[in-house]
Nucleic acid binder design. Structure first.
Lengths: 240, 240
DNA sequence: TTGGAAGCGAGAGCACTGCTCTCATTCTCC
DNA sequence: GGAGAATGAGAGCAGTGCTCTCGCTTCCAA
């Protein structure tokens, strides 16, 4: 597969470092993530890991990309195995995001929580994986619009942002008009707001006895606000 | 005002520590907040500050309460000086939250970002200040409902959470039914989701050219989803 | 008035962190 | 085989949170 044995060993060590870092992240959080502890667990002296990772921030970047990839994979899988109707796909996306966030709170916090101060995630390494979920969401809504299955009163989009929506539409090859895009972006931030509130405990530790029910309600509400309706069989059979 | 000179001096020192900590928080963030640096700036050796603050976490608690208080004060002031109509009050609340968050990103992150791992904010010290904004929001919506100015299609609340809504209604002395409370909670998380996305840069650094316009759109949409409408003069004149 | 107690700051010290530098070893490729 | 790159070990620097002991000052009460 890989080239020289040395290259393969290097790749293996890098993957080991990522794995150990991921575990540590879950145990102590991003702020307390320690390169020395990773080195200890790797069975190596601390200076040795600097042969593989330039500094602590680069290890964070590794973990950010790793987390984005896993989240994206799980969301993709959930949406793929959902019925083709837009409502089901949206619900599957939201459910997968929430499930991953609840299962991996530290890694979710790394992606969607407070940015680590002084650390700027390098765009060229993170955007590809980092934009997967919102891109998929946009396409779900856009497909529904193309199929004429969007029955919502979105309200007009802000005209001052028309240029921004045009860029978004072009970059993602969308067809939906500004009001749909604006509503989609708002639903996106609302979804992650609800997930963050649950994962970060903003609702209070025991305010809501049934987090699943709260999530289902939130998602149903967001779907309705987007204009997604449960549609008939002709849509579930796809456009092909 | 205070008791003995020693007590007054202690209080002054504690307030100095809070102030220095607040500044440091803005410069380096919560993760890198250093008690030793605070001591240096205070002109004192590091062990001395342990006479006032048990540990780093307690300093964080001090700053959390301080931030909640300032945010609550500014939101209160904004809502108080807004017209009495619910839509104006809601818009003022959202604008004040966002303005404070944009102005004080590190302190906003301390309150609504990822929780600092291993640090649990002591409820007895933080809940009083920490629940002010959501309490005010609930009352704005509840007042509108009492006045008959809520014209929304909220959709039914999840019945499994009826008990939770009853507790909320009792604790906050509200009158609105479950569907209104459920929609209010969802709007609350959606508002902070949008603010967090803006403050934490989730939208992308330059995706939206006019953050103000995006905020205005989001707030208008949330208000509409809550059923808040711009109402006539009879409401602006109050209920007295 | 005069003790004792409590509060306070300084300093040393421990264990930890990120990161750098030097040095010896090992692997790779010409 | 030999030049050179890659690798790991170790020492070291500056910083961190936190503890402990030591004196000094303030306060309060007998």
């Amino acid at each position: 597969m890989a080239g020289t044995p040395r290259e393969r060993a290097r790749e293996q060590t890098l993957s080991d470092i990522t794995l150990i870092g991921r575990r540590q992240l879950g145990e102590v959080g991003a702020a307390a993530l320690s390169l020395r502890a990773v080195a200890r667990e790797l069975g190596v002296v601390s200076s040795a890991v600097y042969r593989y990772v330039a500094n602590r921030d680069e290890l964070l970047t590794l973990l950010v990309v790793d987390a984005y990839r896993e989240l994206g994979d799980e969301v993709d899988a959930a949406v793929d195995s959902a019925p083709q109707a837009a409502l089901g796909r949206f619900t599957a996306l939201a459910g997968a995001v929430r499930a991953w966030a609840v299962r991996e709170p530290s890694r979710y916090a790394l992606l969607y929580g407070s940015p680590v101060p002084g650390y700027e995630a390098p765009a060229e390494q993170t955007t590809t994986q980092g934009t997967r979920v919102v891109t998929l969401l946009a396409h779900i809504v856009d497909d529904a619009w193309r199929a004429g299955n969007l029955h919502g009163a979105a309200g007009p989009a802000p005209t001052r942002l028309a240029g921004d929506y045009r860029v978004i539409r072009d970059q993602l090859s969308l067809a939906a008009p500004d009001d749909v895009l604006a509503a989609t972006v708002q639903a996106w931030s609302a979804l992650f707001g609800a997930v963050s509130f649950e994962v970060f405990g903003q609702y209070g530790t025991d305010t809501f006895s049934d987090p699943d029910a709260l999530h289902d309600y939130t998602v149903a509400r967001l779907a309705a606000q987007l204009g997604l309706r449960d549609v008939g069989v002709q849509d579930a059979q796809g456009t092909a």
